[in-house]
Amino acid sequence: MNLTLYVWRQASAASAGRLSRYEAADLSPDMSFLELLDVVNERLTRQGEAPIAFDHDCREGICGSCGLMINGVAHGPLKATATCQLHLRSFRDGATIYIEPWRARAFPVLRDLVVDRTAFDRIIAAGGFVGVSTGSAPDANSLPVPKTDADLAMDAAQCIGCGACVAACPNASAMLFTAAKVGHLALLPQGQPERMRRALGMVQQMDAEGFGGCTWHGECMEACPKEISIDWIARLYRDYIRASATRPERVAVEVAL
């Protein structure tokens, strides 16, 4: 099959970018979307042009490295699928495809389709962790967790931090990511000591990074390759409001004691 691509090319963070047109011919419908870019890049390299830079790692849909805005949809037309698991059979032969990087002030473009997502790392560093005792490993199942809570926590813990929620959100909001990271720990006994501080700290960092706010369009949930529900955002509001109304330090100390 043949495709016409419009790809965002930008030499560096400081330079201006533009969409460049590429014709990709003789493609197999069973190629993955990233393999399409590999093929185009081989040709560009042979022609002495700079290849298109894009992020990728596992190509199994589980690492969260890849992520492209494909025809105005984060990760492309297939639901619950990261870009690497999208195949050309999801497109018509002869189709025109626009490929753009995630766009957000908090995700500056580094080069072509690669954006800097370290803002997510800083949100995690602001509270997305649990304190554990070092030393010998605890006995298995020494902390009982109800099955329903464990299952629910896993729904949010599936977040791979790809940033599609930010990319798809009309406000470039990182609410779904932050909500998933706050939410899965809030459901588990290990997450209780820091629970209130976590909600306050991670939300504060999220705002400081320059992400927008949630207006409940629901775009993030549709874009999420792990189908994380916007219900997590409601849970984040619940924890955040509760934390704002209590003394988080005291709560933390009381639970720890």
Partner: peptide, 13 residues
């Protein structure tokens, strides 16, 4: 939060 707009957007939800 989004200084540079997308060339194309297709709302899904």
């Amino acid at each position: 939060a989004r200084p540079e707009p997308y060339a194309r957007t297709e709302p899904q939800a």
